[in-house]
């Protein structure tokens, strides 16, 4: 039986040689969890099913550092590796595959030029093409707003907090596109994406749990695997996302980086609660 995947996310600051995995912000100072390839090896030992490396600096001169991080990781760690952050072209993608990445995750560049999804999927295969979608709730306050959203072709989603649609953001959450995230997920599937990495901007960093309404809205409309992301603070959040949505995988960062729970602990908890995981 196919297991649900638990994926630690390594947000990489590549300004330092070898890079550093960002843990969080404490007293207005960035804190680090460690060197990416060392942490990757630790998470592999703990039973991570895959690893996602995100270049949070995403500037061109840092590309070589990321390639180095991946090459170093891939020679020690034999699980799938995904690289995201600043993949703008087929050439950027190729560099990461040549370094040893199995998948690239594209976000901003795909929204700017939709054909990039087709290109990456055609050249490297759908299995290597992940589209990351950062979505934010836009609540509909009254009948007029509902009518306008319907006319604009938005997917209206009922949530416990009220009806909303989901807007895609890009440039690392700094800008909004006006694009409906649920519709966009269908489009990237048609264009050949093999997986969607779906992050709730409302929940990201809150530790309040995944946005189940968003996750299920996308799972309902696509037939490719969906990775739920944003908001995981406790093992029970993973349990909820797997029990109440069709997500294939859950991604989390700080819960693991702060050593609040090891991946083993999370997986043991999930197994006790009858979520099928690899232990």
């Amino acid at each position: 039986m196919l297991t649900k995947r638990i994926i630690p996310c390594l947000d990489c600051d590549l300004a330092l040689p070898e890079g550093r995995v960002v843990k969080g912000i404490e007293f207005q100072r960035i804190t680090y969890a460690g060197i990416p390839w060392e942490l990757a090896r630790e998470y592999d030992k703990q039973g991570a099913d895959e690893l996602v490396f995100l270049d949070i600096t995403a500037s061109h001169e840092r590309r070589e550092t990321m390639a180095h991080v991946i090459a170093k990781t891939a020679s020690n760690v034999f699980i799938p590796l995904t690289v995201g952050g600043g993949i703008r072209s087929v050439e950027d993608a190729r560099r990461m595959f040549n370094a040893g990445a199995d998948k690239v995750s594209i976000n901003t560049a795909a929204l700017l030029r939709h054909e990039l999804v087709n290109d990456v999927a055609r050249i490297f295969g759908s299995q290597a093409c992940v589209v990351a979608i950062d979505a934010k709730r836009r609540y509909l306050q009254n009948a007029a707003e509902v009518k306008a959203a319907t006319e604009a072709g938005r997917a209206l989603i009922e949530t416990p907090e009220g009806a909303c649609w989901f807007e895609c953001s890009y440039y690392g959450g700094r800008k909004f596109t006006g694009v409906d995230a649920v519709q966009w997920s269908k489009e990237v599937e048609e264009r050949g994406a093999g997986e969607i990495l779906l992050t709730s901007m409302d929940r990201d960093g809150t530790k309040d749990g995944f946005d189940l309404a968003l996750t299920q809205a996308v799972c309902d409309r696509v037939n490719i695997p969906v990775i739920a992301s944003g908001g995981c603070g406790l093992p029970v959040h993973m349990k909820a996302v797997f029990e109440r949505t069709d997500a294939s995988a859950a991604l989390a960062a700080s819960i693991f980086h702060y050593k609040e729970y090891t991946i083993q602990e999370v997986k043991r908890y999930l197994r006790e609660n009858e979520v099928h995981v690899r232990v």
């Binding site: 196919l2 297991t3 995947r5 099913d49 759908s126 093999g194 997986e195 695997p225 690899r278």
Partner: peptide, 8 residues
Amino acid sequence: RVPHMGWN
């Protein structure tokens, strides 16, 4: 769901 992606 296609692809069959993950650990089995």
